[in-house]
Design a protein around this nucleic acid. Structure first.
Lengths: 233, 233
DNA sequence: CAGGCAAAAAGTGCATGCACTTGCCTTTGG
DNA sequence: CCAAAGGCAAGTGCATGCACTTTTTGCCTG
């Protein structure tokens, strides 16, 4: 149809769409249960249905969308139980990463971790929530990498991305910033000591607290479920 | 082309292809690094390239195949490090499942687990390797389910399926059957006691042993790599 | 007026075709 | 004889079209 489009592509078109759609889901722009019509998406992204279908395939495999044969795709509806289960898994995965980090991080990694952690104290003082959240993501990524285990790294990153929509507002609770830093501090200290068990426990507790903070929002879910149900048509 | 084919299929065509190709990879029929030509696969399965592409998308997201833009797909080459990492993850995941199982299994689940476990002793006596492997799969699945956490269940099942090609021959080592049963016994005992820590440790050790047993085969990999490289054309 | 049925509309699943990219091979200039 | 460039073949990426499935809507019947 269009001779060339402004496509240019870094990576493939499908990849871009996967990212774009995943982003819309993760940021809550697309709500759970919302119908994903191939035709509409194709029109929206100005491509044909073929790459849309492929992208939906990817997203389905990622667990972000649910595909029902001959009945189209919807944004994955996450039940209360499943959400709890994911946070629980996250806590355990982070515990593993922290434990391994304590046992395996190189000197450079430890120094860098501690350095960044200490620097982040400033963000807490300033109450820079957005910057702190950015740092927080980086902090946790360091733990995942520090475990020196690609597969655990992958599992953890995947789970985290699936939890992203539900963690967004955690820092809006008053005093959360300072507490988060203190929890990080316990983890860092344990890692510097090389105390895997303590680091694991601290990381697990840290995530559990985030989980509880997020549960507040999850409580609003029944409404969302109703909304999405009616949105099904 | 063919007016109707024996199409009928439960589930979609793509799903079947995913299973079929995954099976060929998991069973080692398709070797790591082997080129997956869309046209050939389409011909082989008697479908067009479209569902093949979609299936490859799924498989890529699962990590079973690797897709390079404009350059086709190959069966994912798993490095020694990544394999070790996956086994390590598996050990940790099983440890979590066992720990949770010890803490959360219902009375019925516990009884059923113990019953089946005791029954499996007969298979060991008979040296029924194939039957025991079947039971073994079931035994572990019980642990995953017993954790009462859908997401951990999913993570564990996924990881296990990706490890399947490398675990196949574990029971060929002499005496492995009896040792496996004893290891199971330690896990079951700990679960019946409700001792999560002990169950976790026992499960981790159990997997670690399987991992070492499989490492024997992984050692044959360099040859495989050469083979697959030349197979690239 | 409610319930059910049937036909049409909507939307998914797959096939086919064409453009573009990539890798290889040939050809030509140094 | 080697190296670089250009062309050729193979194969991927996407668009479009048609068949089949699901869902909806309007009509008929009890």
């Amino acid at each position: 149809m269009s001779g060339k489009r402004s496509l240019v592509r870094s990576g493939t078109t499908v990849d871009q769409m996967v990212r774009a759609i995943a982003d819309r889901i993760v940021t809550g722009y697309l709500r759970p249960g919302e119908k994903l019509d191939e035709g509409s998406l194709a029109a929206r992204f100005e491509v044909s249905r073929t790459p849309v279908r492929e992208a939906l395939g990817h997203l389905s495999a990622m667990g972000l969308v649910e595909r029902r044969p001959n009945r189209g795709a919807i944004v994955a509806v996450i039940t209360q139980e499943h959400l709890a289960s994911m946070f629980e898994s996250m806590a355990e995965l982070e515990a593993i990463c922290a434990r391994f980090s304590a046992e395996r991080m190189t000197g450079a990694e430890r120094r860098s971790l501690e350095l960044e952690h200490q620097a982040s104290a400033r963000l807490v003082q300033l109450g820079a929530e957005e910057d702190y959240e950015y740092f927080n993501t980086d902090f946790h990524s360091r733990l995942y990498r520090g475990a020196h285990s690609t597969h655990i790294h992958d599992l953890t990153m995947t789970t985290r991305s699936r939890l992203a929509p539900f963690r967004r507002a955690q820092f809006m609770l008053p005093g959360r910033l300072a507490k988060s830093w203190q929890e990080h501090d316990v983890i860092v200290t344990a890692i510097m000591r090389g105390d895997g068990a303590a680091a694991g426990k601290a990381a697990r507790d840290h995530v559990s607290i985030v989980s509880e903070a997020s549960a507040v929002f999850a409580a609003a879910d029944p409404m969302e479920q109703r909304l999405s149900r009616s949105a099904r048509r």
